[in-house]
Nucleic acid binder design. Structure first.
Lengths: 254, 254
DNA sequence: AAGTGGTCTAGACCACATT
DNA sequence: ATGTGGTCTAGACCACTTC
């Protein structure tokens, strides 16, 4: 009965998306099979198939023939503009990653930070500053704020072994991301931490991520402009099946 | 008869993609309807429907209920990392766009340019340099090289009325794009053209686009870093139906 | 053997555009 | 009136994994 405004496959999709968004279904959880949906909702199998197939194409779930359908892992994986872990990027280049934590604590949100995280000035948020090294060369200063309610164990983490990005991704899949890329001259402190040459700018990536409809992290990433650049490649869908979104990664210049 | 390696809907998709890639089907051309495919290939309508529906999701075609299916316009439109026309961006902000052509001619490809366009050193390529102004303020220096075989009328265009980007998009839909974002100090000439303050870096976007499997343009875009930034937003598929890829636009700071 | 996803069929009804 | 896409059904066969 296509009386209802929305088609049935769409209703099924929204049903499952809501369960994922609310946390009712967590990453790696099993999603109702096509036959489950047929039995539970009375649709035909083709309709259930379309719902799950589209959720798969959109990155919400993973399907394995003969096994089942599962909530997509970690995050909408390669979807969110390749929010790749800096440590993974470095390891993929065959280099050694290390990092130093300059600060890890609690801070009162104010101004830009409060605005970015949708909280009131004076609210407690977590704050971590660390420098990432590639083969001992500093390549990124990470200045990150995280909502306290979202990541209660934030202060107990050892961010030299698991990056903040990896830790936060493990807590909950990110659902939305906002990026800003800027160029600017570094201040004295940044220049020292990144060992930036005199008169060299830095490339700044500002990122905000959402989970469950609310912003959870606000991060500023500073990179020495003469050593690193952002690279992105887009190929038409279908040629590569892995992702529908563009991928952008930080890479060495030259 | 699912004897063939590839599923039939996939074969149909590839058939149509090939016709688009080869230029046999041009933007706005009518694509065979579902019933056409049923009659021509003997598949069921559901199979033809899936092929065309997926091509639509992937941006190759546009479908209009009651009318027909057509090759997607201009380019995989919003797909290629929102390769938006700078003039359109400025107009969307309600501002006035103007531009000045500094150079428009033929040049022998060499070094980086030859490599980027996959042609031999010494081959002729077109070269245009122009400055774009927003309300009279210079915001972008465009340094563009275009394959001569791809755009034979390049030298006859008036790029102050139609930007090179718009002109090239109209010739053929772009199929692949590569971006690099860097920060660097401008050289003296660039600083003068963009009226960049002393000691201010610029944000550089380097873009290469493909059509029909070969690179056709290679462009360097320089922006005053204290006035402009790149902003991108990613929302999960399904929430917004327009595009599956991220969108990144140049925008004012503050 | 049972369950899963992957695909395909041959019908069907609908809302909508064009003619 | 015809053709279009949009959706849905109730079956079917297959390859695969798990038990």
């Amino acid at each position: 009965m296509p009386m209802s405004a929305k088609p049935r496959y769409m209703q099924l999709k929204e049903l499952i998306i809501n369960q994922i968004s609310s946390g009712e279904l967590k990453p790696r959880d099993r999603v109702p099979s096509e036959n489950d949906l047929v039995g539970a909702t009375g649709v035909s199998r083709m309709t259930a198939n379309r719902a799950l197939r589209e959720l798969n194409n959109e990155g919400y779930v993973e399907r394995v023939a003969g096994v089942g359908t599962f909530v997509a892992d970690v995050m909408a994986a390669s979807h969110v503009l390749q929010v790749k872990n800096i440590a993974d990027e470095i390891h993929e280049r065959g280099h050694a990653h290390s990092s130093a934590v300059l600060r890890q604590g609690r801070i009162r949100a104010a101004g830009e930070v409060a605005k970015a995280l949708h909280c009131d000035s004076g609210d407690d948020v977590f704050h971590v500053v660390l420098v990432h090294y590639e083969n001992g060369v500093p390549i990124q200063l990470e200045d990150r704020f995280a909502s306290a309610v979202f990541a209660p164990d934030f202060l107990q983490q050892d961010f030299t072994s698991v990056t903040p990005s990896a830790y936060l991704s493990a807590i909950s899949p990110l659902q939305e991301a906002e990026h800003v890329v800027r160029a600017a001259m570094p201040d004295a402190e940044t220049r020292e931490h990144l060992q930036i040459d005199e008169n060299q700018p830095c490339l700044i990536v500002i990122r905000r991520t959402w989970a469950h409809g609310a912003p959870v992290t606000f991060t500023r990433l500073y990179h020495p402009a003469n050593k690193y650049e952002l690279a992105g490649h887009y190929a038409p869908p279908g040629t590569v099946k892995s992702t529908t979104a563009d991928t952008i990664v930080l890479r060495n210049i030259k």
